[in-house]
Structures are given as structure tokens and as C-alpha cells.
């Protein structure tokens, strides 16, 4: 399935922002496709993805990675395939929705990324993939060791950026007076 791009400009054109030992940047995750397997077809989808990309079907909260390609649980009966083109025949088992430019990805890196996010969401990031609210922006959080990727709808990307940048600034402000 070819990637779809209806919009020329990237969702975020801000330069990377650094504060409080953290770095915030917009990243281009590559093609993102949402999969929603038809009833009872999860095993077939898992097998097909295993064969074609070395992936599988993730349990809730799970991310399966292989090379630069990932499949991340993203909602009820839904997972996002990130960074991989998918064979059209997979559509026999699952609805496939290319996200195109509809999704923006913000990457927050630095050892203290949890401190910044603690100001924006009650999540404690005990799983690799979690859905929640970044203030009032619905978001998918993919946890790494020293970084987290925040996937939001493109229409809310600048709001999400503003929230994250503000949290970093306040974290730096707090550190400066204590």
C-alpha cells in the first residue's frame, strides 16, 4: 500500500527545543498504518506480519519491533504499524487505514522525560504503549529507555508541542530556584 500524502507542509515546523536537560523534537516516523483485524482474524494478521516483517499482533500495552519497523498497540482492537509498507493482501484479514499526514509524532528525550510528562498526564508509563490524555489532547505514548514518542492527531500537534514546551520550561524554572 502506497503512502498517502495530501498535505505538503509537515505538521510541526518548530526547531528542536531544549530545556531542563530534555530535548523536544518533531520526528517523521515513516508510514503509519492503523490495523483493525476483522473478528477472529487476529492470529492470521499476526502470522502474516510475522512472515512479512518479523512482527506480530501486540497485546494491550505492547510494542513489537523488528529492525526499524514496529507494531504498537494503540487502542481497542487497534494497532499502528510504524515505519513499514504493508502488503495489500493483508486486507483480507484486517481493516487497514494509512494515517498519511494525519498523525504527528513528537519525541521527548532525556533521562527526566517522566518529570515533564508528570505535569501533563497522570499516566505512570508502566507499559510500552499507553493511550491517555496530554492535558486535553488525546495521545498515544510509546515509551523508550531515555525517550518517549507522543503520537497525536495532526490538528492538535501544535497544542501538544506547546504543552510539552511549557512543561519543560517550568521544570527548568523550578530547578533554577531550588
Amino acid at each position: 500500500m502506497g503512502s498517502i500524502s495530501l498535505i505538503k507542509a509537515p505538521a510541526l515546523e518548530q526547531a528542536p527545543f531544549e530545556a531542563a536537560g530534555l530535548r523536544l523534537e518533531a520526528v517523521e516516523p515513516g508510514p503509519v498504518t492503523a490495523l483493525m483485524p476483522y473478528r477472529g482474524r487476529h492470529a492470521a494478521v499476526a502470522t502474516a506480519l510475522e512472515k512479512s516483517h518479523g512482527l506480530g499482533w501486540p497485546e494491550p500495552g505492547q510494542v513489537i519491533a523488528s529492525g526499524g519497523q514496529r507494531i504498537a498497540w494503540s487502542a481497542y482492537n487497534t494497532a499502528l504499524v510504524i515505519g513499514a509498507e504493508l502488503p495489500p493482501r493483508l486486507a483480507n484479514h484486517t481493516a487497514m487505514t494509512p494515517q498519511g499526514d494525519g498523525m504527528a509524532c513528537l519525541r521527548l528525550s532525556g533521562a527526566a522525560w517522566r518529570d515533564a510528562l508528570a505535569r501533563l498526564t497522570p499516566l505512570t508509563f508502566e507499559q510500552d504503549a499507553e493511550r491517555g490524555m496530554l492535558m486535553h489532547v488525546p495521545a498515544l505514548f510509546l515509551r523508550g529507555d531515555d525517550a518517549v514518542e507522543v503520537f497525536v492527531m495532526r490538528s492538535m500537534a501544535r497544542t501538544a508541542w506547546h504543552e510539552l514546551q511549557s512543561a519543560m520550561e517550568r521544570l527548568a524554572g523550578r530547578a533554577a530556584i531550588s
Binding site: P60, A75, Y76, T78, R131, G132, M133, P138
Partner: peptide, 8 residues
């Protein structure tokens, strides 16, 4: 409805 989470 889990609107602020998984949507289930």
C-alpha cells in the same frame, strides 16, 4: 466509554 484512553 473510555474516550480518554483505548476507546473501548
Amino acid at each position: 466509554y473510555h474516550s480518554g484512553g483505548c476507546g473501548a
